[in-house]
């Protein structure tokens, strides 16, 4: 609760755009990506959902967050990064391409008191794009990423379904993979994995003012990190698709983050 008040205080004092505005309905998206802050409807924003356009590698993740936010009481705006108004929560779904000035916008938002959620979609990018993503997150946020991991590389994914079809093998034979990512913050939650993760390197988290908050198959792939008055939350496993396809734990986790 304290976090929520703090973020709202940030919003009302940092920029005039959010202050003294007319009351608006909750659970409603106010904008489209190209709309500038100057023509935004007058009202208090709880969240900005960032559309990175080509930099978003998983459009269905963006759609998932949008759908989930629409089901909450959250007043949110979908915006492109260079035109995003201040808000206590900034969500960046499916992030792969991250231009330096855009990364600085996110960092400045966090330092000013926002909670910035960067969800990596780079596991679905080509290698050069992933490498640029890794460098950008290190340079601007100090996050050290490992190479993407295919959680289903033991051969029980789509390719093996084909093989099973061709060979006539029973699909159920020898299955042992547990298809969940475990979070311990802001609440404990078990969310379906999305096949590939971007794990975090083992680092001295205290030195980074952060700690891991999520694991997949024993690997840390989500973390939170303090920046100035706010924080950065990094997800190395896409959560948006789970929101889109009705994973109740994913929705509970997001709601807890928004409070």
């Amino acid at each position: 609760m304290r976090i929520r008040v703090s973020r709202r205080h940030f919003l009302s004092t940092a920029v005039g755009a959010g202050a003294g505005l007319a009351s608006v309905a909750r659970g409603r998206c106010f904008g489209i990506a190209s709309r500038s802050p100057a023509v935004l409807p007058q009202g208090h924003l709880d969240c900005v959902l960032v559309d990175l356009a080509d930099g978003c590698r998983l459009r269905e993740s963006l759609a998932g967050y949008e759908a989930a936010l629409s089901r909450t009481h959250c007043r949110f705006l979908r915006a492109v990064p260079r035109q995003m108004p201040p808000a206590p929560v900034v969500i960046v779904p499916g992030c792969a391409g991250l231009a330096p000035d855009v990364a600085e916008i996110f960092r400045s938002s966090a330092e000013a008191g926002a909670l910035v959620l960067v969800e990596s979609g780079a596991a679905y990018a080509e290698l050069p794009e992933f490498e640029a993503h890794r460098v950008a997150l290190d340079l601007h946020f100090g996050l050290k990423l490992e190479a993407p991991v295919d959680l289903w590389s033991d051969g029980r994914g789509e390719e093996s379904a084909l093989a099973r079809h061709a060979e006539g093998r029973r699909a159920e034979a020898g299955r042992s993979h547990v298809p969940y990512v475990d979070y311990n913050w802001p609440i404990a939650a078990k969310v379906r994995d999305f096949s590939r993760i971007v794990p975090l390197c083992n680092v001295v988290w205290a030195a980074l003012n952060g700690e891991p908050i999520g694991w997949a198959q024993g690997r840390p792939m989500a973390a939170r990190q303090s920046f100035g008055r706010g924080k950065l939350v990094f997800l190395g496993s896409p959560l948006g698709p789970a929101l889109r396809y009705g994973d109740r734990e994913a929705e509970r986790w997001l709601n807890a983050l928004l409070v």
Binding site: W152, R156, G157, E158, S160, A161, A171, R175, H177, P179, R192, S195, P241, Y245, G246
Partner: peptide, 8 residues
Amino acid sequence: TAEVPYNE
């Protein structure tokens, strides 16, 4: 598949 569930 075991990997990609029905809803998706």
